[in-house]
């Protein structure tokens, strides 16, 4: 079988994606049926038996095939599609988990919100959600238009400067769900990936508790003291924030939990010591035009120490 079958859109992992996958199958069947009818009619018109051709050869055939048939098929589809539109945008219940995802050139800013919709945890390029519970995402943009799309969980929704769009996603099984920016946003748009990780509720609660504790505490990684110093002195802290340390930059991704992320560079590289070093040394060679300058002048030991320090941020 082909690699990648079933394709994510037809392999849903949440209720909204399920509904659309069902619709997709219905539509594919409709398309096959109509195409079949048209091809059959064409074949009959060109080389059918004379009496059949005669039947096809008048305005009546146009009224039946070109008007009545499409009107019936399309009416059914329209009613189905419109009803689905309504269920997909059912009003929020109010007890959903909330997070804010902001599209940036070319990464994703993530903030977990409390019930009063205040941000309590900051992260980037990765979102953790509990299984079986709807999650409401506030989608915003920090610069140009991006589009948030995790195909196995829901359809996509744009992130537009000056606006806040609301999308609801839900995963019914634990797993890692990939996504990618779907609206062309210039430069390395192709390299703007995203990861949603769904955990069972209990593990999710555990994760959030430990992260909240981590965010509140001061950094405790003495073995990487050299890295911590470098993080300040080399200018990393001007753009990146690490909770509990003086690093408080907001231009780039929050690195408080960078060590535990599955990917680097917004969903494009595995996260390990080697890729971390390569990214720090010269991310421009990896993801051209991204906003992080190359640090080619930094000695290897320093990059190594920085990578070690960042690996410990989890």
């Amino acid at each position: 079988m082909l690699d990648g079958w079933p394709p994510p859109i037809l392999d849903p992992a949440g209720p909204d994606a399920w509904a659309i996958a069902t619709l997709a199958w219905v539509l594919l069947a409709m398309a096959a049926l109509v195409l079949g009818v048209v091809l059959a009619a064409m074949w009959l018109a060109l080389s059918g038996r004379p009496e059949l051709r005669a039947r096809l050869g008048g305005t009546k055939a146009i009224w039946i095939g070109g008007v009545a048939f499409p009107v019936v098929v399309l009416s059914l589809l329209l009613v189905y599609g419109l009803s689905l539109t309504r269920t997909q945008s059912a009003p929020l219940r109010g007890d959903e988990m909330r997070a804010r995802v902001t599209g940036e050139m070319w990464w994703w800013r993530v903030a977990y919100l409390d019930q009063q919709r205040r941000p309590v945890l900051h992260d980037a390029n990765e979102l953790h959600i509990p299984v079986g519970r709807p999650v409401v995402l506030e989608l915003e943009s920090g610069d140009v238009i991006h589009s948030f799309w995790v195909p196995r969980l829901a359809g996509k929704l744009d992130m537009i400067p000056g606006r806040r769009n609301i999308i609801r996603i839900q995963a019914d099984q634990p797993g890692v769900f990939g996504g990618q920016c779907a609206e062309y946003c210039g430069g390395p748009h192709a390299l703007m990936g995203f990861v949603v990780v769904a955990h069972p509720q209990q593990r999710f609660d555990q994760l959030m508790r430990s992260r909240l504790a981590r965010a509140a505490a001061a950094s405790a990684t003495p073995q990487a003291a050299q890295g911590a110093r470098l993080f300040q002195s080399s200018g990393c802290a001007a753009c990146h924030r690490i909770a509990g340390t003086p690093a408080n930059g907001l231009a780039g991704p929050d690195l408080t939990f960078v060590g535990s992320r599955r990917t680097l560079g917004a969903g494009i590289l595995p996260n390990n010591r080697g890729t971390m070093m390569g990214w720090i040394a010269n991310s421009q060679a990896i993801k051209p035009e991204n906003r992080m300058p190359p640090y080619t002048l930094l000695p290897g030991e320093d990059i190594s120490a920085l990578a070690e320090y960042l690996e410990a941020q989890r």
Binding site: I20, L28, G81, S147, A154, G155
Partner: peptide, 17 residues
Amino acid sequence: LTGVMVALVPFDWQVHD
């Protein structure tokens, strides 16, 4: 026919762009 498919809003939410 694929045009009719994408004319349905929920399906378009998936395949748009």
